[in-house]
Computed example of a mutant assay.
Amino acid sequence: MDFDEIVDDVGRAVDLAGVAIIVCGAVAATAVFVSRLLGRRQALPDLYRLYRQNLGRTILLGLEVLVAGDIIRTVAASPTLGSVAVLAAIVGVRTFLSLSLEIELEGRWPWRKAAAGVDRDRV
């Protein structure tokens, strides 16, 4: 097994971890939502908002891990101009998705500080 094969396998393993994070996180967020829904400890709009936040955080983490896998496979294994351009496009799209999700979850730009005294519900 040569270096390129090892790097490709590591990149695929990181990609698999990213997908697993998204799937497991989505299942966990759904389980928490259903549990709270059946327990009716909170109003439905609040439960839905928390569900979306938990699901969004899971997707953000998974996207970050998937970007790491892309970087490992593209830059370490085959750093051609074409592969780096494809990587740049993939990272650009995933960064846009991450930024959009962050704004959706927090209700503000990521570089803006949270308002003093605001306690965001987190699970």
Rank of each mutant, 00 (worst) to 15 (best):
K113E: 14
R120H: 11
S78P: 00
I6H: 08
V86W: 01
V84K: 04
L37Y: 11
T30W: 09
T80K: 12
D15A: 11
A17H: 01
R57M: 15
I72M: 05
A28Y: 14
M1F: 08
G18P: 02
G11V: 06
K113R: 15
L38K: 02
V19Q: 00
V123M: 11
V118E: 08
E104K: 11
S78N: 12
L55F: 09
A20G: 03
R57P: 06
V86N: 00
L87H: 01
E5L: 12
R73G: 13
A76Y: 10
G107D: 09
V34R: 06
A88K: 00
A88D: 00
A43E: 09
A114C: 05
A114K: 11
S78D: 11
D8G: 01
A85T: 06
R41Q: 09
V14R: 00
V10P: 04
T58Y: 07
R120C: 07
L101Y: 07
A68L: 13
A28T: 12
V75H: 03
P110V: 07
R108W: 08
V14Y: 01
T58C: 15
G82A: 10
V32K: 08
G92K: 05
C24M: 13
G18W: 03
C24Q: 05
G117E: 07
L37H: 10
T58P: 07
L50I: 04
Y48M: 14
L55N: 02
V7S: 05
I22C: 06
E102Y: 12
D121R: 11
L37E: 05
T58K: 03
L105F: 01
V118I: 08
S100R: 11
L50R: 03
L66T: 04
D8Q: 08
T95I: 13
V14Q: 00
P79A: 05
L60G: 13
S83L: 13
A17F: 10
P110Q: 04
L105Q: 04
I71Y: 09
A26H: 07
W111K: 01
D9K: 10
A76W: 12
L60M: 13
R40F: 10
A43W: 01
M1C: 10
V65I: 12
F96T: 03
V93H: 07
V27Q: 07
A13N: 03
S35A: 15
G11M: 06
R40M: 08
A28N: 10
F96P: 00
L87P: 02
E5K: 09
A76G: 09
V14G: 05
L38W: 04
A85V: 05
L87W: 02
G62A: 12
L16A: 14
L101F: 10
D9A: 12
R120W: 09
G56H: 04
V19S: 02
V32A: 14
R52S: 13
I72E: 01
V84P: 05
E64G: 15
L66F: 09
G82C: 00
A29R: 01
R49L: 15
R49C: 14
L38P: 00
L16E: 02
A13L: 07
G69A: 10
A17K: 02
